[in-house]
Design a protein around this nucleic acid. Sequence first.
DNA 1: TTGTAGGCGTTATCAA
DNA 2: TTGATAACGCCTACAA
Lengths: 348, 348
Amino acid sequence: MDGAAGRRGRRTSGPTLHDVAREAGVSVATASRAFNGSSTRNVKPEYISRVLAAAERIGYQPHLSAQAIALGSTRTAALVVSDIDDPYFSSIAAGVITAAQAQRLIPTVAIADRSPDRELQIVRTLRGQRPRVIIIAGSRIDGSGTDGALSEELEAYQAAGGRVVLVSQEGLPFSTVAIDNGGGARALAEALVGRGYRRFGVLCAAPAIRTSHDRCGGFLAGLAAAGVPDPTVVETAFTRAGGYDATHELLRGGRPTVDAVVAVNDVMAIGAMTAIRDAGLVPGRDVGVAGFDDISWCADLDPALSTVAVPLHEVGVTAMRLALGDDRGVRVVPVATSVVLRDSTPPR
Amino acid sequence: MDGAAGRRGRRTSGPTLHDVAREAGVSVATASRAFNGSSTRNVKPEYISRVLAAAERIGYQPHLSAQAIALGSTRTAALVVSDIDDPYFSSIAAGVITAAQAQRLIPTVAIADRSPDRELQIVRTLRGQRPRVIIIAGSRIDGSGTDGALSEELEAYQAAGGRVVLVSQEGLPFSTVAIDNGGGARALAEALVGRGYRRFGVLCAAPAIRTSHDRCGGFLAGLAAAGVPDPTVVETAFTRAGGYDATHELLRGGRPTVDAVVAVNDVMAIGAMTAIRDAGLVPGRDVGVAGFDDISWCADLDPALSTVAVPLHEVGVTAMRLALGDDRGVRVVPVATSVVLRDSTPPR
DNA sequence: TTGTAGGCGTTATCAA
DNA sequence: TTGATAACGCCTACAA
């Protein structure tokens, strides 16, 4: 509480390496070496312990920002998500953050709020942070007008040595963890047809939203392949409310004209189930329901929700691994999905 | 691609202020002032635009770490949560992150994995990051043995100018956003008794977990006050699985010995509902169910889950506001909770 | 109004 | 093996 206070214009910090060195009676250089023995580990053992003890005593913690400029690189990893309070993104985030921590990297999280403009702005300021990696998990929105600028920004970041990984938004020239949305949706279509469903209501988001587009397209392709044409496709918001509203609309006529409602993600499907109930029908019995993602609650719903499982946590870990891998250059790592049939789509 | 490359030992970065200054034909000082005109805004307008243009041209972004050491303080805000992939924490995180971004702070997120040791370790390394604020949202675990060390670490951090805010873990000598767990639980007890319930099964976590302890205590107090003694209290894990297992156990005897199961959080209640179904009973009709938190899905469950609403997003925002407020010194900001009765506890 | 110079906390180079 | 000392990129008195 006093040995550390002898410097000039200090504002708010803690003891510095100088303080440790003085306390231990060695030079700053030696003190520094005592910590990162890695570089040239020729420090007398006694000094090492003396330095460590001194550090412990005065509560020294190396100043990461200072290290960053001295070393020329930070130890942070930046993650950009659309909305952390959404099970899809929070699961991915959990994977990314866990993986980052395992590498002793400090994870930074930014929320883009589903806005491409916001996303672009975030990436711009992120560059100032000089993170080792930038991982972007959001729905690529085609034709949003910011793609060019975003790519430019990321290119510049890469040119400066940064690593970029995108989650499920192929098409941009960066490494990507590619969730098999199309294949999963197609398999779901086949599985549902196999259970006897024929008349589908498909709830998808604006076609510009890539993830939705791919899932929707895969599902339609699957139906077509199975010889089940002409589902009713409803475009709505990519949220629980969107699923509710669209289903409400779909069921408006009184008796249902579809025997299953399929949404491009689970939260929409959950909204759909509630709408079905509000229409006086029983999900599963009167109208089948299926989603996509397999978020944690699916199995706890009643009826349990059929869906396409995406290993979200693993997606996050994979993104991090990809970002930290030796292989620079654009790589696309596919992540398989699998159909999970539960009681919300009983055999019909 | 060449104007920025004339320096010595550069590793991986981007253009520096030097490059901008050279490009604009002014000194570094002027260039610096052109950006943060705030301090001494006496820069010839023409220079300002020239500098800005140059920066734009070569894609300059100020190096935050460099600014941090020059200014003596960073622009990061650290958040520690137990598990980001849990609606309770992800909602709080959303609030914290949004508030941080609004203040142009960079939010950092660490996951403590419900381990006090991990939490302590995180806080230690966090100190090296020199964040402006540290917000810890986790279940305080009484007698975990790390409380002393944690407090010490945080005290040191505060002494160095940092701000600490705890979410819902009173008892430590730091500013806290205090969720009214006890009051909410008590009100829930009264409400359920008001609906005719008498024989309760209470699912709580280990008494060392403060949040659980407070909620459980409040509920029991409420029952006692209403003259409804002796609920069956079951101790289990603070998770969905814990809720399931405990309820499974509770219902083992065949016909239920309780007319309502009350869990200390919603995810446990969700597990309980599934266990009730698996026992061949109907939640709501045969056994009432209530939780705590009011996470997003409560209203979409069937039956919709009765609970005690906690404004989680607001809690996060409040924590940030508290951390950034002028008022240093320990403050406790109470956050009210409110009972929300839904169909999982129909009048009996 | 502008530029020069020194400092922020750390690491790395180079003598000693 | 150790200790000065020069970077790292930026900001800010201070002097011009």
